[in-house]
Nucleic acid binder design. Structure first.
Lengths: 224, 224
DNA sequence: TTATTTTTGTATCGTTCTGTATAAAATAAG
DNA sequence: CTTATTTTATACAGAACGATACAAAAATAA
């Protein structure tokens, strides 16, 4: 059944709040949806079903937006996918920021980063979604060169974040001066990839936590 | 353009050898394709484009089999996907067997296993395919419970193989008796997952090899 | 009010998709 | 040779897909 305008108030799709009030009053008819919320819904849908596995009807239903409006606001399917992925990356940057706080020790930072990853990867209404980069975007890179560059950038960004962590620890004397931080960093990043895969496959949380614990222990072998 | 029977000899699809000669002469018209070869083609196609991204036309073209014959031989799309995945697992078991040879040291075994992984994950006519389990099957587990069990089994199998390696090393005295093999094993397995993702994203081979080298070094820290 | 601009909702177009019906072709058995 | 059996090739049915045309609706500007 299709949404009906049976009242005086325009029917907003269930659960989708109306357009952001802070928007400066523009000329024409106002949007009936909040762009950010709708994009988050698209992100979840793509993460669940992948690019090819998600139809525009799925997106339209999940976002509570009719297809023509969807095209007007986000472009075609590929463009929407790209925007959803960018939004995911931005969201992750926020989520992980706490793990990179300068007052944390190497061990604390790694613990927090892995705990965040487990929480993010395990979330999902229909089951754990894993990581957009690892599960969804990386699968699509063979068909989309632009996307591949974004994925490469995302992987490099994680490697770099880990590298900074280890370099900082070495500068602080948490690690010996000869610690091979260039080797440790991508290994630390690898744990994220594995956590994503295992979480998606519904590995028990205890297993994920054990992996994280073991990784921290091993990566901090040289730490004082 | 469609395959034409313009000669007396039945036209086998280009590059696909005729049915296996060792097949016992059965009653009706013989198959024009080798089941194993066709399945390998299906596997490659699914690995390139994923389940939803691969159409039956794609499969039919890649396998050199008309759709009705395809259904007759392999069932519907899901069934074919499952068989292709099982074939991948069997192929991997063969490929990795050498790394688990009993005469290898822990370090040698890990080096060989990671080298094998890099070779497998980097192969592909249209670009590196990564790992079926990590890239393709794990993405699909949300829509297919049966597949999820297979993926879980595949991940557990890798963890177990790594565990056996570390246990063997400890028994042989390569590792100290108090080495935490239960923590080391899933970490060693994690490196495969990361190699798959990075290879798929076309990370330079040197980067993959550096990751493998670093992993071996770290995992063998306690090895004599 | 009236005109202008933008979004919404419906309906649809052409394509592609999965799966199958059907008849010709190819082989073994009788 | 005839019959039974299995596969192949063509063609097609019904549904789902991505994308868009069009008019009503809802807001601002004049």
């Amino acid at each position: 059944m299709v949404q009906k305008n049976n009242g005086k108030r325009r029917g907003a799709p269930p659960g989708v709040p109306a357009a952001e009030p802070e928007a400066p009053a523009k000329r024409g008819r106002p949007r009936a949806f909040a762009t950010e919320v709708a994009l988050a819904r698209a992100m979840d849908t793509f993460r669940d079903s992948g690019f090819a596995g998600t139809s525009l009807d799925d997106l339209s239903a999940a976002m509570g937006i009719n297809r023509p409006s969807l095209y007007g606001a986000f472009g075609d399917k590929r463009e929407l996918f790209g925007k959803a992925y960018e939004r995911y990356r931005a969201e992750m940057a926020e989520q992980f920021a706490a793990a990179f706080a300068p007052d944390l020790t190497l061990r604390q930072a790694l613990e927090k980063a892995y705990a965040t990853a487990i929480a993010v990867y395990s979330a999902g209404e229909n089951g754990p979604r894993g990581c957009f980069t690892v599960m969804t975007a990386a699968s699509e890179v063979m068909a989309d060169e632009r996307l591949r560059e974004t994925v490469t950038a995302a992987l490099a960004s994680t490697d770099r974040a880990m590298l900074r962590l280890f370099e900082r620890a070495r500068e602080r004397g948490e690690l010996p001066p000869d610690a091979d931080v260039a080797a440790l960093a991508p290994l630390a990043a690898s744990v994220f990839h594995s956590l994503a895969v295992r979480a998606r496959a519904r590995a028990p949380r205890a297993e994920l936590e054990a992996l994280a614990r073991g990784a921290v222990a091993l990566l901090c072998t040289q730490a004082r």
